[in-house]
Design a protein around this nucleic acid. Sequence first.
DNA 1: ATGACTAATAGCATTAGA
Length: 265
Amino acid sequence: MKIATYNINGIKARMPRLTEWLAETRPGVACLQEIKSQDEGVPAAEIEALGYTAIWHGQKAFNGVAILVDAQAGLTLTEVQRGLGVDGPKDGEGEQARYLEADVSGVRVACLYLPNGNPHPGPKFDYKLAWMEALRARMAAIWAEEVPAVVTGDFNVIPEDSDTWSVKAMQDDALMQPESRAAYARMLGDGWCDAVRTLNPRGGVWTYWDYQAGAWQRDHGFRIDHILLSPECADQLEATGVDRDHRGREKASDHAPVWVKLRGD
DNA sequence: ATGACTAATAGCATTAGA
């Protein structure tokens, strides 16, 4: 089974790209982030017409996550949880739409959009770290259920220096502060497998290129979209990839899709 | 250089992203 994560940066603006990506690469599971839409604004009929069943957790203007599964391939989708119970950094705003978890034909799939955390330091960075601790706790609960599990999405963390084109350019960014990296490393320390890192130990794999300053043309990217596997899934890890060509297309997201292929046995 | 792009919402710019 192929499981993919894709920060699409606006589902309405990206529907042409999303449509052709699903048709061309046909992932069994597609975890989407930054749908930037309220629930009622998601083009549900178009998604269904592509042969995918979907659930989503949206909000006005920002954030928002969705899980799509290939119904034509016979995969089933049952929601398990939405949200991690962490309020946003502004007074009284409540929880932001950043987490959605489902059972996909016996595999637990968590789709997340971790807070960016800039500017650092400040309340947004504190929010990021609090959210990461809540995520780690949820991952421990999933672990305790002893189900095969995939936790994936836009983590907004550059885990190591080899995950960015320039350490110097990013050194003051929330994405690679020591606290952000340590929180991510704790998840790996708990036993979760960073799939792309495992098959690309020397780094140099990017999943995001800024819209600005010709970052795509210069290959000034970094790796922040991750796929973490439970031991059962890690044992089945066959391949990973980044659909880079989709970043270079007209009206593309600033992220590229990232995927893992797991053996089905 | 608190810049450069892009999307969304509400304007005739602002916020947020990373």
